[in-house]
Write a protein that binds this DNA or RNA. Structure first.
Length: 418
RNA sequence: GUGGCUGUGGUGAAGCGGUUAACACGUGCGACUGUGACUCGCAUAUUCGAGGGUUCGAUACCCUCCAGCCACCCCA
């Protein structure tokens, strides 16, 4: 193999591309129904943006970013996630000044330098949505309902919604302390990773898959019991709204997120069908992020969907795209007529294919079959002379005549369709 | 960054020291001189991820490298 794509960067070939289009179109439809508008932001930002938003000490910033110095000597980074860039744009264009509430969605590639595996790539794609400017738990519930609708519309019932609350800067430090002191006495029984986590991020111990650690952390205090009264009220309201709209969910007080900016409500859509990658969509509230980036103090909440992971779940479903008519020609003389007929039909909105290279009739018919054309027609000297031809419905071989004009063909198809 | 597994055509693969490198699918052409699907025929890897070594001989054994996959870490 002479030249290959960069490790972890994939080509999306035509069959899979149809699946992606289905995912993207469904997202657009559902999001726009909910009043969200698309925002397109660059795939590259100043490195500082991600350090300040995602958090300097997170794995993403510490070891997974595609960061380099451009020719002007500036440190730039290929976006590892979408929210930071959208918030930067919101602040830069003062979108909150025209309308205190912004409802935005985006889709596109993200980049993280990780070892690729099933459902995880160095260039991967996310579809995300954000609401800024609303403190009320109603916004949390709408975002969760919209995410749930997306999965319903896409035809996936398997992933389930898990929610949690991480508290706010008021109550989280106290919880961290309580968790640390509880785990301190049992640290000896934990796995090596968890011993490290104890120092770096004790919340992660709750998420460990090692049986011994699960056992040791079983009685650890729950975040939900340490929420301050306003965070507790907020979480209760979110649950109440979800109940009100009959949105199914479960509470997972051990759920941890990888980005520092999350506050209060966090959530994941999880599945057991993707090996070790269980999250197919995730998000949460980020009330401190915008001010942290130098904007006004306005709250936000949003999520991101992993497109590759959804495509994997959709893997067995077929999406097809086939022509309405295939025009076969007998000789070079008929190809001019076939070509202008095809051109007219295409302009009228019918999907038409014809032979490009003067192949044998047999080859042309095989191709019509292979493309799954609904109808075929053969144009030879007789057809040119009479101005009409016999059309064949490929599914059952039914033949009928029609004039070789755009109007004639349309009315034939119309007639045969009913 | 760490570990495990695997690299034979467009694809799925058999072969595991000497073969015309099996078989199947796909693709192309033809049987049918104006009609696809089913059937049949023919064609389709001078070569087995790359480089080196062992050997009279290596796709096969050994080493190195590269790539892919899966898992850990972490995450969508």
């Amino acid at each position: 193999m002479a030249l290959t794509a960069v490790k972890g960067f994939n080509d999306i070939l035509s069959d899979e591309s149809l699946r992606w289009q289905h995912i993207e179109q469904t997202a657009r439809r559902v999001f726009e129904l909910n009043g969200f508008g698309e925002i397109r932001v660059p795939v590259m930002e100043k490195t500082e943006l991600f350090c300040r938003s995602i958090g300097d000490a997170t794995d993403i910033v510490e070891k997974e970013m595609y960061t380099f110095t451009d020719k002007g000597g500036n440190s730039v980074t290929l976006r590892p996630e979408g929210t930071a860039g959208v918030m930067r744009a919101l602040i830069e264009h003062k979108l909150y000044a025209q309308d205190p509430v912004a409802k935005l969605y985006y889709m596109g590639p993200m980049f993280r330098y990780e070892r690729p595996q099933k459902g995880r790539y160095r260039q991967f794609h996310q579809i995300g949505a954000e609401i800024t400017g609303v403190n009320d738990p109603l916004a949390d519930a709408q975002v969760l309902n919209m995410l749930t609708s997306f999965f319903r519309e896409i035809g996936l019932s398997e992933p389930t919604l898990q929610i949690n609350s991480l508290g706010c800067p008021e109550c989280r430090p106290a919880y961290r302390t309580a968790l640390r002191s509880c785990l301190e006495e049992r640290i000896g029984g934990l796995c090596e990773d968890c011993k490290r986590r104890f120092a770096t991020n004790p919340l992660r111990i709750l998420d460990c898959k090692v049986p011994g650690c699960i056992e040791k952390s079983a009685g650890a205090p729950s975040v939900l019991e340490h929420l301050c009264s306003s965070c507790n009220d907020h979480f209760s309201s979110v649950k109440r709204y979800l109940d009100l709209s009959a949105t199914p969910y479960s509470i997972n007080s051990r759920m941890v997120r990888g980005l520092d900016y999350y506050t209060r409500t966090t959530f994941e859509m999880v599945t057991g069908l993707l090996g070790s990658q269980s999250a197919v969509a995730a998000g949460g509230r980020y009330d401190g992020l915008i001010s942290q980036l130098g904007g006004p103090s306005i709250p936000g909440i949003g999520f991101a969907i992993g497109v590759e992971r959804i495509a994997l779940l959709l893997g067995n479903q077929q999406f097809t795209s086939s022509p309405d008519l295939f025009i076969a020609t007998m000789g070079a003389g008929e190809r001019d007529i076939a070509f202008s007929l095809m051109d007219g039909l295409l302009k009228s909105g019918l999907r038409v294919e014809m032979d490009y290279e003067g192949k044998s009739l047999k080859s042309q018919m095989r191709r019509a079959d292979k493309l799954k054309a609904r109808y075929s027609v053969v144009i030879g000297e007789n057809e040119v002379a009479t101005g009409s031809a016999t059309f064949k419905r490929m599914a059952d071989g039914l033949q009928s005549d029609a004039a070789l004009t755009v109007a004639g063909i349309h009315s034939l198809i119309m007639k045969l369709e009913q």
